[in-house]
Write a protein that binds this DNA or RNA. Structure first.
Length: 298
DNA sequence: TACTGGCCTAGGTA
DNA sequence: ATACCTAGGCCAG
């Protein structure tokens, strides 16, 4: 099946920008398991070809209802973000499966994207239900029940390290009390964030990623080392010199430091701050390299 | 309340 | 090759 694109969209950028980890590229086609079924998608200009789901599902998953032109007008506050918007125009925030997204970002702490993909792939292979598609076996993302029953050793064998116990405890909590996606969608950003923060292994960064990439809270503004970096480089005048100095001197980010940068992002860019974050994050990742702003060791 | 280390592991880099 | 550094942070003290 195929659909004629009537909105700006770029599939490859959307799947490569670091918001989702389990899509695999094979030639022109992308393969992914979403909600227990396998999806095959490719883009040729204004035509999106797909198999494994209906058009409505595809439209919802890739966020075609987001009015990108309007979003760009609202977040396009300065030349730097405008450059990122221009470079990656068509990048959209995906509506991931919340549980998969939650697990992904619990595992993502202090890991590179390549390593995250590897961990999640192993978890799926080991604990996910096999799904046949076009004569081939794929694996669905494992349920909370299955992960809750896994031993620490089994989880660690997927490369999780210290994240294994977080994932085990969180899975057990979800198995016992559920993961109330519907309720969180209805809540405000702040309320839903507080719910997520109750789970082990979930701090503000992980919560913001889940809110943005799976719960439709487009004002969420996750702050990681790259975001911190481009804020230091390009938005320094927005902060007090003393605060800037402290940020530059320390590698990590304290709770209060996180909240200040997060608050800046949400107030400066507005209700679509999450889109700004993702365009800028990807821009930083592709063009800014890994210049070292950390305190020099002596 | 705010800050400091420690933490598992795997890619990437010198 | 082999050592070292950093990676989409969180938690305990």
């Amino acid at each position: 099946m195929s659909l004629q694109l009537s909105v700006p969209f770029r599939l490859d950028v959307t799947l490569c920008c670091g918001q989702v980890f389990l899509w695999e590229r094979r030639g022109d086609w992308w393969f992914g398991v979403v909600g227990g079924s396998v999806l095959r998608v490719r883009q040729c200009g204004d035509v999106l070809g797909f198999a494994g789901a209906n058009e409505e599902f595809v439209r919802r998953y890739f966020g075609f209802d987001d009015d990108l032109n309007r979003i760009a007008r609202e977040i396009g506050k300065d030349q730097y973000i405008k450059s990122a918007l221009h470079e990656f125009w068509g990048l959209r925030i995906v509506r991931q499966e919340p549980w998969e997204c939650f697990v992904s970002f619990i595992c993502a702490t202090y890991k590179s994207v390549a390593a995250i993909q590897r961990m999640l792939t192993q978890l799926s292979l080991k604990f996910g239900k096999p799904v046949e598609f076009e004569g081939e076996v794929f694996h669905a993302f494992p349920s909370a029940e299955r992960l809750a029953a896994a031993s620490l050793e089994e989880l660690k064998s997927c490369g999780l390290g210290y994240r294994a116990s977080y994932l085990q405890k969180t899975s057990q909590m979800v198995e016992a009390n559920g993961f109330n996606v519907k309720a969180m969608r209805k809540m405000s950003y702040a309320e839903a964030r507080d719910v997520l923060l109750e789970f082990p292994g979930v701090g503000p960064k992980v919560a913001d990623c889940v809110l943005l990439f799976s719960l439709g809270k487009l004002e969420a503004f996750p702050v990681d080392v790259r975001v911190k970096r481009f804020l230091l480089r390009h938005y320094a005048p927005a902060f007090e010199p003393v605060f800037m100095e402290k940020l530059t001197q320390t590698g990590g980010l304290s709770d209060s430091g996180y909240e200040r940068l997060n608050f800046f992002g949400r107030t400066y860019f507005g209700r679509y701050a999450g889109y700004a974050q993702e365009y800028l994050y990807h821009y930083e990742r592709c063009f800014a390299g890994t210049a070292n702003l950390k305190k020099k060791r002596s």
